[in-house]
C-alpha cells in the first residue's frame, strides 16, 4: 500500500500536466490557454516536490506561476477586445504530421525503455538550498556569471525593442 500513494499522485499530476498542456496548445481562447498554462506549471512543481527538489519546486512556483504567467495574463487582459478574439490556428498536413509525431514518440519510448539509465544514488532528503548555494559559488560559479551576462543582454535587447524611435 505504501508504494501505491506516490504512484497515484504521480499519475494524477501527469494527467493534469498533459491535459492542461493540450488545452494551451489547441485552445482557441487566449485567456483560457493562459490559465491552462497555470495548471501545467503547477504540475511540474509537483514533480519537483516528489523528487525531493524543494528549492526548485519553490522557484518554479515563484518564477513561472508568480512572475511569468502573471505577466502573460496582464499582457493578454490589457490587450483590446481580447475576449472576442478567435485564435486563428489553421492545421496543415495533419496526416503526415501525426505520422511523424507518432514515429518520434515510438522511438523515444523505445529508447527510454531499453536504455540502461544511470541510477543516481539515493540522497538524503532535506533542504537543498544550502547545497545549491554552495554549488553555485564553487563548482558552478562560471556558469552562474555567464548566465548574468545572458540576462543583461536579454534586458538590453528587450529595452531596445520596445523603445520609441525618437528617444534614442
Amino acid at each position: 500500500m505504501e508504494d501505491l500513494a506516490p504512484k497515484i499522485i504521480f499519475w494524477v499530476f501527469a494527467a493534469l500536466m498533459l491535459g492542461s498542456a493540450l488545452i494551451v496548445v489547441a485552445g482557441k481562447n487566449l485567456v483560457r490557454s493562459a490559465f491552462a498554462l497555470l495548471a501545467t506549471f503547477f504540475s511540474v512543481a509537483a514533480f519537483y516536490v516528489m523528487l525531493g527538489a524543494d528549492f526548485l519546486a519553490g522557484a518554479q512556483v515563484l518564477v513561472y506561476v508568480g512572475g511569468i504567467l502573471t505577466l502573460i495574463l496582464f499582457g493578454v487582459m490589457l490587450t483590446n477586445r481580447i475576449y472576442s478574439l478567435e485564435l486563428n490556428t489553421p492545421r496543415f498536413q495533419v496526416v503526415p504530421g501525426a505520422l511523424v509525431s507518432a514515429a518520434i514518440f515510438m522511438i523515444l519510448v523505445t529508447v527510454v525503455r531499453v536504455t540502461p539509465w544511470k541510477q543516481a544514488s539515493i540522497v538524503e532528503e532535506g533542504p537543498t538550498t544550502a547545497r545549491i548555494g554552495q554549488a553555485l559559488m564553487n563548482q558552478y560559479v562560471l556558469p552562474f556569471e555567464v548566465a548574468s551576462v545572458l540576462l543583461l543582454i536579454a534586458l538590453l535587447g528587450a529595452a531596445m525593442l520596445v523603445r520609441r524611435r525618437t528617444d534614442l
Binding site: 555567464v146 545572458l150 543582454i153 535587447g157
Partner: peptide
Amino acid sequence: ALETVSVASYI
C-alpha cells in the same frame, strides 16, 4: 554560451 550567442544575435 550558445544561448548567449543566440540571444545577442537575434537582437
